[in-house]
């Protein structure tokens, strides 16, 4: 079990009163790979995400993040902003959460808050306009510009994020998460509401992010995206893991099909056999 995993989720359980949203879930995400978390609506995928990114405190279980240098961080012991700041886990949201009244560039600058805060000497050096601050600010703008160029939004850098088309907002949110320089990027349904062309561009973007060494954990409903880019897939239903494996294996797994079709296992096997 101690392969090169960036994240290992161990017996994670999350209860809301009497409802068990996630029940004793364990899985691993490999380093520099794309791991997809799929399952029908209400399976508990977003709850897992919220636990990993510190928005929920899990009822029980452990989540260990292992950095490149071998440093281990127990995510369940950190709360909200420290997950991003110290553990270097960034996330996007199912319903886009950009800063709509700020420009695309500003959105990416806010993401570099912690780096810039240090460079500005906790504001005081920045207030007097110290040269070191100017250099750091320039570097941050360059970094933001690079990302804007990469997601094809350079021409709209000075437009309000709320004015951008939906697909651009999705990509901008990913770029914003990447500007925090994360080790693990968690994407909650990044392809939701995108057309075929935009989904293809998204797949390309995610593959290029992986190639640069960032591990990705992905929740997605769009199976074409999931099957195309994932290295490993974890399938959830009713808060438990029902299957795990490479995309080809998942595609043919009767349990997975049963979960998606809402039928029981025997029926699904029957359906599959009659189909082939």
């Amino acid at each position: 079990m101690s392969g090169d995993h960036i994240l290992s989720v161990d017996h994670l359980t999350m209860r809301f009163g009497g409802v068990v949203a996630v029940n004793d879930l364990s899985f691993e995400a490999e380093r520099r790979k794309i791991t997809a978390l799929i399952g029908p609506n209400g399976a508990g995928k977003t709850t897992v995400f919220n636990c990993i990114t510190g928005f929920y405190k899990p009822t029980s279980g452990a989540m260990r993040l292992t950095h490149d240098d071998g440093r281990n961080i127990q995510l369940e012991r950190l709360n909200d902003f420290r997950i991003s700041k110290q553990a270097k886990v960034a996330r996007t949201f199912q319903n886009i959460r950009l800063f709509p009244g700020m420009t695309a560039l500003e959105n990416l600058m806010v993401a570099q808050h912690n780096t810039l805060m240090r460079a500005s000497g906790l504001t005081f050096l920045g207030l007097i306009g110290a040269p070191s601050w100017r250099v750091a600010e320039k570097r941050a703008i360059d970094q933001a510009t690079r990302w804007l160029e990469r997601i094809g939004l350079l021409a709209r850098a000075d437009d309000a994020a709320g004015n951008l088309p939906y697909g651009d907002q999705r990509r901008l949110e990913i770029a914003r998460a990447m500007c925090t320089e994360p080790a693990l990027l968690c994407l909650d349904e990044p392809a939701a509401g995108l057309n075929t062309r935009e989904s293809a561009a998204l797949s390309e973007l995610l593959l290029s992010i992986r190639a640069e060494g960032t591990s990705i954990l992905l929740i997605e409903h769009d199976m074409s995206v999931v099957m195309e880019i994932s290295d490993h897939i974890v399938v959830m239903d009713y808060g438990v893991r029902i299957a795990e494996g490479a995309p080809q294996d998942i595609r043919d797994d009767p349990k997975v099909i049963a979960a998606y079709l809402g039928a029981d296992e025997q029926e699904a096997i029957a359906v599959m056999e009659s189909g082939t």
């Binding site: 991003s84 960034a90 959460r97 993401a111 998460a177």
Partner: peptide, 14 residues
């Protein structure tokens, strides 16, 4: 200003 726009997103950005 980011806090005014979206506090949850702020926390997600560290």
């Amino acid at each position: 200003e980011a806090l005014r726009e979206d506090e949850v997103a702020c926390r997600a950005l560290g």
